[in-house]
Design a binder for these strands. Structure first.
Lengths: 106, 106
DNA sequence: TTAATATGCAACCAAATGGTTGCATGTCAA
DNA sequence: TTGACATGCAACCATTTGGTTGCATATTAA
């Protein structure tokens, strides 16, 4: 569940589309997910494997079917640990700009 | 400045390292950024081009030097428009779990 | 002006990536 | 049990990616 795996998993538009699909209806099977795309089942399988490897989705075996569930924890970790860092940087920059403006037009 | 370009730009660990370097010291030149890695200048140039293409960094030409500045806007947009969506989903899931627990142990 | 410095451009290469087809395995239902 | 259905595995292919080397251009400083 390395951060790099999550970034790489999110890098592909098809995989983000799969996540969107699961967000729309959680717990879909492989075939259900396939019906929403125009590629082969095997291609979807590979993408799902990458998403599962990154721990972005979790699967539950149910007889001959396999249900796929979103796991938003890694995405939130990225948001908090990595993106948040740059967000704070931006807020600081904005704050600095504000102070500068206040100084320049009293 | 498509969202896909930003995701792809963030997918590579080397590029995230470059962003980290700029977060540490904003406005570095190409050579300055090179000194913090172990690859060739040309490789760094390519990565910077991808980051610039995704609008994650902005450059300012200064004589024969080129300064690189972070632009956190696209990253924040991703955080708000895309990651936020899954975060809300998670909160809802937690809320549902809470309600279920409340029902099960009165 | 000339030498050193900072960056840009292009060709080339190995490896990773995204996708396909074909076949195998496992499970449900008649 | 047998056929239909859901998924898994493996080989293969084209393109992209990350990186290199070599040379070109532009700017600063002596």
């Amino acid at each position: 569940m390395s951060m790099d795996a999550v970034f790489r998993a999110l890098a592909d538009p098809t995989r983000r589309q799969l996540l969107d699909s699961l967000h729309d209806r959680n717990g879909q099977t492989l075939n259900a997910l396939c019906e929403r795309t125009d590629m082969t089942r095997q291609a979807v399988t590979k993408h799902l494997a990458i998403l599962e490897e990154a721990n972005v989705i979790t699967t539950v075996r149910n007889g001959r079917e396999k249900e796929h569930y979103l796991n938003s924890v890694p995405i939130n970790e990225i948001a908090e640990r990595w993106i948040g860092k740059f967000e704070r940087g931006r807020l600081t920059a904005l704050s600095d700009l504000k102070k500068r403006l206040e100084r320049e037009e009293p």
